[in-house]
């Protein structure tokens, strides 16, 4: 589904990945682990081009993004890539000026031009799926961390992504909230969603992983 081939990422003088390969198998969960600073986030962000690679190729189905594309072409292809993927951040990044429901409906409305009424029922369904149906009218500032992260997952799902990228989704949460969020992720896995998740929690990683990638070993 999504794959990296011989990808290299540099920050100035420093090479983070030299000729790195990765495949995210459809319907499977790939867990990225490793010490802090080992490049887990960077790898995940390469997958939706929040970071650009310096060599190699990214593939997503028929979509191909080799390194060194002219900016306009890179933008065009990246937009397509991002419409097929979605991301959940450690710090949630809900839109504070929008209600929970509007956070979930915004992307379908803006990106696909969906009617508010058409998308609203589905948004409420997604919120129910993550256990946040009752919070639809609330604003992000009034949510706990665990609640916010579950809304963030619903927001990501609202765009019907083929792949969901999660960057330490539970690192900022207390144990109870963590359990709630993990339950939601496990549920997604059960439903056959393709997942790529960064975590520094070995138990969580092992319990979810179909494929486990340990980053220090892979440094080029």
């Amino acid at each position: 589904m999504i794959s990296l081939r011989a990808v290299t990422k540099r920050f100035g003088e420093r090479t983070l990945f030299g000729g790195f390969d990765l495949d995210l198998a459809p319907g499977k969960t790939t867990v990225l682990m490793g010490r802090s600073g080992s490049g887990k986030s960077t790898l995940l962000r390469l997958l939706n081009q929040l970071e650009r690679h310096d060599a190699g190729t990214l593939r997503c189905g028929e979509l191909e993004i080799p390194a060194g594309l002219p900016h306009g072409e890179w933008q065009r292809r990246t937009l397509q890539l991002r419409r097929r993927t979605a991301m959940v951040f450690q710090s949630y990044q809900l839109f504070p000026h929008l209600s929970v429901l509007d956070n979930v409906t915004l992307a379908p409305r803006v990106v696909r031009g969906a009617e508010r009424s058409a998308i609203e029922a589905k948004a409420r369904e997604l919120l129910a799926q993550v256990g946040m149906a009752a919070a639809a009218e609330r604003f992000p500032a009034r949510l706990s961390g665990g609640e916010a992260q579950r809304v963030a997952i619903a927001r990501a799902l609202a765009t019907d992504p083929e792949v969901l990228l999660l960057d330490e989704p539970t690192s900022a949460l207390d144990p109870n909230s963590t359990a709630d969020v993990v339950a939601v992720i496990a549920d997604l896995k059960r439903r056959g969603m393709t997942l790529a998740m960064v975590t520094h929690d070995p138990d969580l990683g092992r319990s979810l992983a179909d494929q486990l990638v340990e980053l220090p070993r892979l440094r080029g």
Partner: peptide, 16 residues
């Protein structure tokens, strides 16, 4: 910056 990134990962153009 995270707010911009969140919007970008949802497939927004810069203008959106």
């Amino acid at each position: 910056r995270g707010q911009r990134e969140a919007a970008m990962t949802l497939g927004f153009t810069t203008a959106q």
